[in-house]
């Protein structure tokens, strides 16, 4: 990559995260090779800290105190800080780095939209484990779509949220390698 992200890395997790998605791209799952119906548990858990929640809210310039101010959030109906619903994105990228689901890091992938169900707020102190299922893949108008169903479960075995994560992907490993060389590797 031609950019250096170091100055934007604020939280402890960000500073220790492997952020060069091109460097490891040859190891990511490929659309062509993914088998539907398989279930996996992500090996990395996410221990939620207040700084993670607040940093996400700051990045989207959302100053709603429920999601950005620990002190004021205690006076809200939620009685404490909770995460913005799309904070699920951060948990997903933190927990999925290689192996099943690593296609979410694919250079050149495009986001066609997402579906999310939220059952309980995510709060500081939660330790989230991702239970994943290769849910569907399909071809439409020459584009190759991939969906994983990802369940976000806390340390008390409570289901916090389910996300059907979908991307349009390069179809083959050679297509991904084109993107690694900064060449276009999508068919449509």
């Amino acid at each position: 990559m031609t950019v250096n992200m170091e100055k934007f890395l604020v939280t402890e997790k960000q500073k220790n995260f492997p952020w060069d998605f091109i460097a490891d791209a040859d190891t990511y799952e490929v659309w062509d090779e993914i088998e539907i119906g398989k279930e996996y548990v992500a090996p990395i858990k996410y221990e939620v800290k207040a700084e993670d929640i607040i940093n996400y809210s700051q990045a989207i310039l959302d100053d709603n105190p429920v999601i950005s101010d620990e002190k004021k959030a205690k006076e809200s109906p939620f009685k404490g800080l909770i995460a913005h619903p799309l904070f699920l994105t951060t948990i997903g990228f933190f927990c999925i780095r290689s192996g099943p689901g690593s296609w979410i890091r694919t250079p050149g992938a495009r986001n066609p939209g997402q579906k999310i169900e939220l059952y309980e707020p995510i709060r500081p102190g939660d330790i989230i484990t991702l239970h994943m299922k290769s849910y569907d893949k399909w071809i439409k108008r020459g584009k190759y779509y991939m969906t994983y169903e990802i369940k976000y479960i806390d340390q008390h075995n409570r289901l916090k949220a389910t996300m059907w994560t979908t991307l349009i992907l390069p179809r083959t490993r050679e297509d991904i390698r084109k993107f690694m060389r900064a060449e276009h590797g999508l068919e449509a």
Binding site: M1, T2, V3, M5, F8, L9, V10, K13, Q14, F17, W19, D20, F21, I22, N55, Y56, Q58, A59, I60, T89, T90, F93, F94, R105, T106, P107, G108, A109, R110, F179, A182, E183, H184, G185, L186
Partner: peptide
């Protein structure tokens, strides 16, 4: 760039202006 750090989504299509000049997803 700040959102990339917050979400941990560092896909080059978002963060790398040089890469995207030719890759163009």
């Amino acid at each position: 760039w700040k959102y990339a750090a917050a979400s941990l989504d560092f896909n080059p299509v978002h963060i790398d202006p040089e890469w995207v000049k030719t890759a163009q997803p």
